[in-house]
Design a protein around this nucleic acid. Structure first.
Lengths: 199, 199, 199, 199
DNA sequence: TATGAATGAGGCTTCATTCAT
DNA sequence: GATGAATGAAGCCTCATTCAT
């Protein structure tokens, strides 16, 4: 019994991983139940033993990305107390996670996740605001430590920091590697960090 | 039922407008020929009198957005010679055009447009780089006039300016208006303009 | 594109000719009203001024072939009184008319002509039996003149003579010229004429 | 509605049989996926579990007819060594198989099968020449045994024998049974066999 | 747990035909 | 007599999902 249940747990992970991988590679539209099943070595109908619907798989995928993102954040916070260093580290990690993160906008902008059920859209928004809150926390600490300007409120700064991520992801997506994303991110960071650093 | 018969030029415009509107509202995937036809008050097959295929409609939509974007840019450039003023104006116009612009990322991230034919992906990239070139021009002029810092190259500055747009669009999309996009854009602009202004 | 308005009689002929030509070249299925209209330099809807429907055009085409066939027959009969010579001449003419005749089986075997309306099928059958009757007449005369065996009835002989045509047409159609149809027809004729010649 | 679930092998056969039957009855053009599905008691999309496309079904149908034809030939050859007896048997079997054989010319003349892809036309030609070769073999054996005239080459004789089939099929098709096909075939055979028999 | 057949909704497209101009 | 827009029926196919085994 316990073994069976574990089996399901493992399958769920397998499936969600496969989903993220397929989405990153080919987009949500190409993520057919059939393709997904093929990827995990099952038959389409078998997926329905582990998930109620395709939508549920997408939800799980979104949550996985969220979890990874938060883990990432915690690790970064643990590695240094300095706000600017934390933020830079975070930004650079995005470059590495970009494949996975790419699934994120694709899901968000993809219909079938967001369009029909306002519920799902709200959920994505919740995730975003959660992320923003975390950044806001870092900003606030940075302000308290005197590392960050205090004439701009932490919330706004958080949004502006986050705002560096979408362009990076989009450029990476569109350019197929032709654009030097790392370099661009570093330049952006220079400008941004210089602008928010306390004087 | 019986609707007026309109010239094909008018119909084409109507259809493309409707397509953009539907994409902005529900995404590319939901843009079915049926929905599109319903929107313009025709029967699905009637669209094929004016376009050879659905893909051709999407192409036309992309081109329309591109054209609008460039027109916008020209108008802005015509209204003032000052680089920072031009850029601010441009940014603020985006807020107004947001409905239409929203169709843009959806098209870009949609696999129906880009995934199958790498050709289309490349096309979108060409459009983006065209836009970036224009901004770069503004930046360079600004540097020559002494309005913009010269220790950062115009190209990088252009990308950074463009980088303010995606977050704005995404926030607007995700928050359903809960987020005060205008205010956020203004704050972003303050920070950005301050950072790039020549001292 | 300044289109002359032509009398309906001329137009009807034009259209039917075009139909036969298109059918011979590409088959009935490809004979769309649009293609037909293009061929005669009109717009599809214009055809409906001259014919009530596509079906009517096909009917007219069938009748035209019939008429041509009968004309052919008359000419052949006029050229010589000898039965065997008449038949040989007729057979050889088929080789020349093959393009046009090819439209015949295509129409007969094509659905939309025969399948739905038993009426049309019957009509084709009437044409065939008309042709057979004519041949039967030739045979009978030949028998009376002592040129043809009399131990086989004229009707059967007629059918057998006609039976040489379909293979010729089919081979021509299928082989795209690889098969030496003329040679084959001559051999067939030798065997057949020898077999029916009075001794 | 809920019909039994059958193994895919059985279904494939069922479907192909149904296809042949529908083609014989109404022609290729009328062979819609919907009609086919209805005939086998399934929903249209269900067919796509067993065949990749409609074209694949047609291909299978062609192959089935071919296989049946060859089986027929083998059986006939096994039943007697005498060339003329073999040929007569073969001819008479055609009368029985006529329903199925009727699908054959319809497929051959149908543009849906042959016109678009010259490949298919060629394939049909290959089948025909294969059949002709087999007949040629019988003729040659007959000549060696002294049963068949040797002043006509086997190849030509084969084509002439095959040439008796199309008229039979056509007459049966057109006359809806009004024509006594069996009798006609017998007469044709008498004449033909008499003409080729060695003296 | 996994399979494989079957379903039903929906998607794009073609085409003969009608109708106002 | 001719045009061009619009229609409606029909056609092929995809896909998420269900269900019996």
């Amino acid at each position: 019994m316990a073994l069976e249940k574990l089996g399901t747990e493992i399958r769920r992970e397998q499936i969600v991983e496969a989903a993220l991988s397929l989405i990153a590679a080919q987009g949500v539209r190409r993520l057919s139940v059939a393709a997904l099943a093929r990827r995990v070595g099952l038959v389409p109908s078998a997926l329905y033993r582990h998930f109620k619907s395709k939508q549920e798989i997408l939800d799980a995928a979104v949550q996985l990305v969220q979890r990874r993102g938060l883990d990432n954040l915690k690790e970064v916070c643990a590695s240094t107390p300095n706000a600017l260093e934390r933020l830079k580290l975070l930004l650079m990690r995005v470059i590495k996670m970009i494949r996975e993160l790419q699934a994120m906008p694709r899901i968000v902008f993809s219909e079938g996740v967001s369009a029909d059920h306002p519920e799902r859209k709200r959920q994505a928004y919740v995730i975003l605001t959660g992320f923003l809150s975390a950044i806001e926390g870092i900003m606030r600490e940075g302000q308290e430590r005197g590392e960050v300007r205090t004439d701009l409120d932490a919330k706004t700064l958080a949004v502006m920091f986050w705002g560096m991520l979408p362009p990076v992801v989009i450029l990476w997506h569109m350019s197929d590697g032709a654009f030097d994303v790392t370099r661009q991110a570093e330049r952006s960071w220079e400008l941004f960090s210089e602008a928010i650093r306390a004087r």
